[in-house]
Each structure stands twice: as C-alpha cells, then as structure tokens.
Design a protein around this nucleic acid. Structure first.
Length: 463
RNA sequence: GGUCGGAUGGCCGAGAGGCGAGGCUCAGGACUGCAAAUCCUGCCACACGGGUUCAAAUCCCGUUCCGACCUCCA
C-alpha cells in the first residue's frame, strides 16, 4: 500500500483512496451513545476504532472535525426513567457521564463537539419544515411527522435491500402512515412524556432525525465520513440518508462501520444480558490502556470474540512493549520520541490494518531489545521512538497523561521504600548471600513488586 | 423469504493466486549465582467436496456449520 490513505466504504463495499471534500480537512460524524444504560465494551470498541481513525488522520496532517452525538431522548430512556422512578433527563445524564468516564478511561479523545439531541430541537424542526415544504414528508394531523419513503429517489442504498423485500413490521400502524415503511421524523406527545412544541403539534424526535440535523449543523450539507456500528446500517443510517438527501444535502461521502464484540459467537447485546461493562472489567481484570489495546487490536471490520483469556494474553503482549519502552528510557536517559515506521504507516493507510501495524511494532521492539543488548544507544532511541509513536497513534502510549495520571498517585514514597529493600538485596548479592537476596525478592514479590537484575542494575515494577 | 459477513495452527488474530504476518502458550538453546527479562531455534495451519491453474488458505461451483440486519441496537 502506498503513502496515501485508503478506506473501505460500506456504500460501495470497496477500499479506495480517501479524498476529502476540502483538501487538508476532514469532517467526521460518529453515531455515539443512546444514553439508556451503562456502556459495554462493544460501545467503546466503536469509540476506540474511530478514535484510531481520527488519530491517524491527524498524524497524517489532516485537520479533523470530529462530531460524536449523544442521543439523550428516546423510547428506552423514557422506559428506564419509569422503571427507575427518576426523571428522564436524570437517567440520560447519569449514563452520559458513564460513557464519558469509559471513553476517558480508555483514552478516547473528546470529540471536537458532542451535541445532544435535546439541544437541537430547533434544527430538527427546520429540517422537518424543509421536508414537508418539498413534499418529502407529511404531518397527518395527530402530531406525528413521517417521511414518505416511496417518494424518495433512492432508498436502502447502504444495506442494498429492496423496499418490498423488507419484512413488514408486525405492528405497523396504518392509522396515520401512508405506507407501513414510512418512518417517524417526529412523534406526537403522549400523556406524561416530555415534549417540545412544533408547527404540527407537541412531541419529541423520532430516532433518526437528530443525526441528520446535527450533522448538518456542525459539518454542513456534505461531509467526509459517517461512522457507527454495523447494526446502524439499517434502519438508522438508511433513514439518515433518506432525510438528508430528501432535504437536498449531499450528506456523507463515505460510510464506515465497526464490527461487533461478540461473546460465545453472539453479538453483545443489551437485551440478551451478556454485556460486559467497562467499569467491571477495569475493576476486575486489566488497566484501561490494556483494555484499549485489546479492543483496538483486531481490524475494525472484524468481529472480536471476547474472552478474559484473550484479554489477558493481549495484555501480556502489551506489557512486553511497555517494558521495552521503560528500559529504553532508562538507557537513553529521556522519554523516547514519537515516530513510526514506514511499515506501520503503510499498514494504517491500508484501511487501518491495525493487526499488520501491530506486527511492525513487534518488529521495532525486537530490534530495540537487540540494540539494548548490544548497548547501541542511538539504535535503542530509534526503535523506542518507532514503538512509542505507533502506540501513541493507537491511543496506547504508556506516557500519555490519560494513563499516567491514573497510576502515578502511589509512586513517591513507595519508590524510596523499595529502593531501601533493593539496596539490602544488592548488598547480600555482593557478599554472595543468595539465600538472603532471594528471600528479599520473594517477599517483595508477595507484595506485588517484581524485581529483575539487568546489566544496568536491578529494576522493579508493580505486577 | 431478502440483505450481508464468517469458519485459518494448542489459543488469539492477519493475509486474499507463488515467497510460512505478528502475538500468546509450549519445548530446546544463549545469557544469568538462581530467577526474571531479552535474543535465537523449533511447533509448516487455512470447515468439507469438486474444479480452474505450472502454482489455491486466496479464484470458480457445490455442501456443511456459525453469526448479523430486516424499523430497540455500537
């Protein structure tokens, strides 16, 4: 692959060269969370995958505008609110915070802007007005507003389906719809539900409208990349396209969809109850940086079959790279730089071939370790910079503040105490009292501190 | 019924006509007081049956199994 970025497009099902609308700039809209429950690792995989895309675009010199929405009003939020006996807006805020926590724990960069659906009712009404004025949508008079899908020039172009092949909705309500496949832009208020006034009656947004309205507000009529999970292709993204194109917008030039995290071969789903929550994994299993490494390690279009064994194995792999960087830092006497190899770049340019990019990092680490043995400081610095720079693009730089601030609290005094024990042990080894030195090593290991003897002296790390 | 994916070594996970990705595990070696770490070597896999080709994990035909979407979904 060349030095030019190539990306897959769900609409064409082909990997081709990425050409932005405006040279040097990229606008991305990512469907973010519907804040109805705590985030599971599938949600955050999507965040991580697109964060890697964003970081690679930035590293490649693009100025990226990254919009990731929060859908803070929908049926499930209202149901949860009733169940929890809490106001719907409290439910939405609670889970929005949980998502924000999960994103930041895994070093997913905050979006350029994070618009909430409820903050864009005005823009939605404007969009609906446009669609009604040009005959694409209709308000039957009960407060609902529908898009008339039979009138569209094209529809279902992403999922490549035929309108008549779709399984008819079982509960299609034809009281107000002209066609059972017409979808709601706006839903009339029911007693007790939150509502906003519109020219067609009080109500609340349908599911798809907010993304079209917000993408237009922040990225304009046409923008470069629209992303989301595989399951959003239909109906969500099809309906976004329908609304936006009916309004005369060019909308997204490229569609990218991340695949699932699965457990036992099945999609991780809220309804099946097999979801793995981010905070549970961080409490029980691994650090944030390791979870990120794992979630980012498979290609974004491949299923990732989750298991704690695989997560642990992946973490072992990561710690090897991390420990190389630590040793390299000691030897060169400074933080390694932030470069990346040509192999890494060409892998990333090939539709973000992270697994291949990972192989190039392993190569840098191996060569770097050999350079350490050889005592070649310049080479150590070169390979350490390659590894660290590549890690940084994947959002897994161990020296990134996002991670160091999580761990550094305990160091300080501990450092001195451990040094005391190490001095005792070094003295014992000097007088060949190996029973004593091994006893120190064993005892300190029980406390979770690993001691290693190297030609450069004894080093320790927290296990 | 329609649409779309997948099946790769003990495990994870790339690749998409020839030149054995990478990692983890395991075994052996080097180094080491011993460990650990590191490096080296080894472990020749592509669901099944046909076909095309000088050459197939990769292309074609068929089969089996698994999964996703079809108006809640990352």
């Amino acid at each position: 692959m060349t030095g030019e970025l190539h990306l897959y497009d769900t609409a064409t099902r082909v990997v081709d060269r990425f050409v932005p609308i405006t040279p040097g700039k990229v606008g991305i809209y990512l469907c973010g969370a519907t804040v109805q429950a705590p985030p599971h690792i599938g949600h955050i995989r999507s965040g991580v995958n697109f964060d890697i895309l964003r970081r690679w675009l930035s590293a490649s010199g693009y100025e990226v505008t990254f919009i990731r929405n929060v859908t803070d009003i929908d049926d499930k939020i209202l149901h949860t609110a009733v169940h929890d006996k809490a106001p719907w807006w409290a439910v939405a805020m609670k889970y929005e915070r949980a998502f924000t926590f999960a994103y930041s724990s895994l070093n997913v960069l905050p979006p350029t802007y994070e618009p909430r659906a409820t903050g864009h009712i005005t823009q939605m009404i404007e969009l609906m007005q446009t669609l009604i004025d040009n005959g694409s949508a209709y308000a039957p008079g009960n407060g609902d507003v529908y898009l008339e899908v039979r009138k569209l020039k094209r529809y279902l172009t992403l999922s490549n389906q035929k309108l008549d092949d779709l399984q008819p909705a079982e509960d299609a309500d034809l009281t107000f719809k002209k066609d059972p496949r017409d979808f709601a832009l706006w839903k009339a208020a029911k007693p007790g539900d939150p509502s906003w006034p519109t020219p067609w009656g009080a109500g609340r947004p349908g599911w798809h409208l907010e993304c079209s309205a917000m993408a237009f507000t922040y990225l304009g009529e046409s923008f470069d990349i629209h992303g989301g999970g595989l399951d959003l292709i239909f109906p969500h993204h099809e309906n976004e396209i329908a609304q936006s194109e009916a309004a005369g917008y060019g909308f997204a030039q490229r569609w990218m969809h991340n695949a699932w995290v699965t457990t036992s071969g099945e999609k991780m789903s809220k309804s099946l109850g097999n979801s793995l929550r981010i905070h549970e994994i961080l409490e029980k299993a691994v650090r944030g940086i390791e979870l990120r490494w794992y979630l980012g390690s498979a290609h974004y279009r491949s299923m990732l079959e989750f298991s704690f064994e695989a997560l642990e194995e992946s973490s072992v792999n990561f710690r090897r790279i991390e420990s190389f960087l630590k040793r390299a830092e000691q030897i060169i006497g400074a933080k390694p730089g932030l470069e990346y190899s040509a192999e890494f770049a060409s892998a990333m340019n090939d539709d973000l071939a992270v697994p291949t990019a990972l192989a190039s990092i392993s190569e840098s680490v191996r060569l770097g370790n050999t350079a350490i043995t050889a005592g070649d400081k310049a080479l150590v610095a070169t390979y350490a910079a390659q590894a660290r720079g590549a890690l940084s693009i994947l959002g897994c730089d161990p020296d990134d503040e996002a991670f160091t601030s999580q761990a550094s609290a305990q160091s300080g005094a501990l450092d001195g105490l451990i040094q005391l024990a190490l001095d005792q042990r070094t003295a014992a080894r000097a007088r060949k009292d190996f029973a004593a030195s091994d006893a120190i090593r064993d005892q300190i290991l029980h406390l979770g501190i690993l001691i290693e003897d190297t030609p450069q002296g004894t080093r320790w790390s927290i296990t």
